[in-house]
């Protein structure tokens, strides 16, 4: 059975600052969508708003899963509806182990919690996470890479319909990234997991086959296309979108800068990029951010 995660005109604020300025995305079962964008473009905000993290105000638009309005639901009901979030910075929960947490999730979902330890062990082995981490307090004293594997283990055990992966690649070495990407692709093939993978590194795309690439700039999707869009971004960076930042970066870079030049607008069209369709015309990447 095919499912659909639909994001329509999503707008959200942090405090009085508008971060998401109208996002449209459609992810179907088995598809892998990758959202790329420079630092500060709103990628994590997008993932948090979808999952229901406190601290954001949704000011417009909808997020539905098979027509179910997720935005009116508390976070745990979104999870129960089939949504999973792998966080960029997974949160430490002192004294609560992965086994405890997922057992509680199983109990509340009417699944037998006795299954959890074996499922966790199997998933840990698949992504090369040492099994002793399964009994440790969640994310406490884990390295960045261990946390990402840990998130992937949880994804595997929970078996959601859709997963939002916020920089699942950061902190992982090449081998770990490969193992994680294999696991995610396995889920898309085996159980039809739909993936919204968010990153600002191209390296994820070397391991994870993407069906669609979207470019997020200043809270808007400014371009969508096939895998070739990523290759192009690799050579030109976000300059074509008026942002002076290379795509492949080793370290955090400064705030994205809007070029604001009308002349650059032509670069954002689809003329120069075969396969890349222009973003919806009502999502003008060069609109005055303060308008």
């Amino acid at each position: 059975m095919s499912h659909v995660l639909l994001i329509e005109g999503l707008r959200a604020n942090v405090g009085s600052k508008e971060i998401l300025r109208g996002i449209d995305l459609e992810v179907n079962s088995g598809e892998v969508h990758v959202v790329m964008g420079p630092n500060g473009s709103g990628k994590s905000t997008l993932s948090h708003v979808i999952a229901g993290r406190p601290g954001y105000e949704v000011t417009g638009g909808k997020v539905t899963l098979d027509g179910l309005d997720l935005l009116t639901l508390p976070a745990w009901k979104r999870a129960r509806a089939g949504l999973f979030l792998a966080m960029q910075y997974p949160i430490e929960v002192p004294g609560v182990s992965l086994v405890d947490a997922l057992s509680a999730a199983f109990v509340s979902n009417g699944r037998p919690p006795a299954l959890v330890p074996d499922l966790l062990a199997a998933e840990a082995d698949r992504v090369g996470l040492d099994r002793r981490f399964l009994l440790r307090p969640l994310n406490v004293d884990l390295s960045g890479g261990e946390r990402k594997r840990n998130e992937t283990v949880q994804l595997g055990v929970i078996g959601p319909l859709f997963a939002v992966l916020d920089e699942i690649d950061s902190g992982l070495d090449v081998d770990a990234l490969r193992a994680v990407a294999r696991r995610i692709e396995g889920a898309t093939a085996e159980s039809g997991l739909g993936v919204l993978a968010i990153t600002h590194y191209n390296r994820l795309l070397n391991e994870l086959h993407a069906d669609r690439i979207h470019v997020l700039i200043e809270g808007r999707i400014v371009a969508s296309g096939g895998p070739e869009l990523a290759e192009e971004l690799e050579t030109t960076g976000y300059a074509a979108y008026g942002v002076d930042e290379p795509v492949v970066v080793g370290a955090a870079v400064g705030a994205a800068r809007l070029a604001g030049a009308a002349g650059a607008a032509s670069g954002a069209g689809n003329g120069g990029r075969p396969g890349a369709s222009a973003a919806r015309t009502d999502l003008d990447p060069f609109a005055d951010p303060f308008a």
């Binding site: 999952a51 229901g52 976070a75 745990w76 949160i91 929960v93 004294g95 999730a105 969640l138």
Partner: peptide, 27 residues
């Protein structure tokens, strides 16, 4: 944030709170 993290795994808030309190006292 801790409550949200557990909730995002499908744990209802009252259950999440109980886990967090037990975890807090665990050491």
């Amino acid at each position: 944030e801790q409550r949200f993290y557990l909730e995002s795994r499908g744990v209802p808030p009252e259950m999440a709170d109980r886990l967090i309190v037990s975890g807090f006292l665990d050491d």
